[in-house]
Nucleic acid binder design. Structure first.
Lengths: 217, 217
DNA sequence: ACAAGTATGTTGTAATTACAACAAAAGGAG
DNA sequence: CTCCTTTTGTTGTAATTACAACATACTTGT
């Protein structure tokens, strides 16, 4: 359990502060067997989990029987923190043990209880949560923005343009190979390759492997 | 400027606390003429804005000259708060005055400065920011999830399934008309109508206007 | 250098969608 | 009720994409 001290939710907190935090948030450990349900879509939760051992999957199961695996959560990563912060917000996904695992749960309770506490550990903790949430926000809105266009071409250009802005240059490397980029933009890999070829022939961009250059004129 | 006291970022704060907050965050008012640039993609910012008068647009302008309007921000709404929280995160969009407008800017500065303050106004303010951020998160991840499927049918079913989970029933009203639903799911309206008809003929769902029923059997 | 494996590019086809134009239905105002 | 407007459903066509199958280039290990 001590290893959780290095999680980002405890960033820049002293051991003493972390211990207070664990107590105040009534941190409790729990183990699950492979395939056991940890949190269920439709429920609400005041707890969020930190994976200490093993891993869990976030999945969506609709009433017609379709299952979609949305993500894996590994050691030192957490899940459901957004739902724990917002009471009344119903979970839209299931959380299931991907293998035998050990989870540390934190009870956030309502935000209201924390608001009236003006202790330093609480301040630090909330700030960490805010930073994590803001980061997630950037990632989500970026992706949402890139898959909004309906054509592959527009998605590519939208993505490349934002990377260019981030790197402050019209020439840069991207952190994806073709398959990963295709997955990120939600398109077929071969169709992506095809469109990249077209864009190059038309002189809109130039690329070799991960390296891209945007040709504006 | 006093009207800003009713913004959600100051929720449950006393007048005194709000005034401290305005001072500490060096709130300053600024006016912009129509079409004037307020924040530019590629920059970073430590300030976020609250619209006091008029409105602004969030838009994306790429180096090939394509402009996309992403959203309008009206009175008492704010913008760029995520970027203000995360120093070093470069803005990926432009913020431009949609009409003559008056903006109240807040300097968040780095989160680090706020962390060490254990005053109540700071705690309340951060909690409010966290709640806002978490909410945005839910909205963004919901939409991202619904437009991830590649077919119209899957997008519809994904959306209806989550509404069903939220309403705890297989029968419910949705808050969109056809055009709005089409926009939300990023598909063509007529194609959406078409697919809804098919789903009804196949006995998967039943719907009349805004009212939907999921037929699992 | 070679072989095996992986990543990327190319092409043709079937499926899906966007788009446009129109028809039908539902509201709203007078 | 009638006219007008808005919303929703239908259909055909052109465009785009996914998919599969294959070709080429690039890696890696031996």
């Amino acid at each position: 359990m001590k290893n959780c001290y290095h999680s980002v939710i405890f960033k820049d907190m002293t051991e003493k502060e972390i211990e207070t935090c664990l107590t105040e948030l009534r941190a409790t450990e729990k183990t699950y067997k492979k395939d056991e349900m940890i949190l269920m879509a439709g429920d609400t939760t005041e707890r969020f989990g930190l994976v200490l051992e093993g891993s869990v999957t976030i999945e969506s199961n609709d009433i017609w029987g379709n299952r979609t695996i949305l993500s894996h959560v590994g050691i030192m990563q957490f899940f459901a923190e957004t739902y724990a912060l917002l009471e009344d917000e119903t979970l839209l996904v299931d959380v299931r043990a991907n293998e035998n695992c050990r989870i540390l749960f934190f009870r956030i309770g309502s935000l209201k209880r924390l608001r009236s506490s003006n202790e330093l550990w609480a301040m630090k903790f909330i700030c960490n949560m805010l930073e994590i949430s803001a980061h997630k926000n950037v990632v989500l809105s970026g992706r949402s923005f890139h898959i909004s266009p309906r054509t592959i071409r527009e998605r590519i250009l939208s993505y490349l343009n934002t990377v260019s802005l981030q790197k402050h240059s019209t020439e840069f490397d991207i952190p994806f190979d073709r398959q990963q980029l295709a997955d990120y933009l939600n398109v077929d890999r071969s169709a992506l390759s095809n469109e990249l070829s077209k864009l190059q022939r038309e002189g809109v961009i130039s690329c070799r492997k991960n390296h891209f250059e945007l040709l504006s004129h």
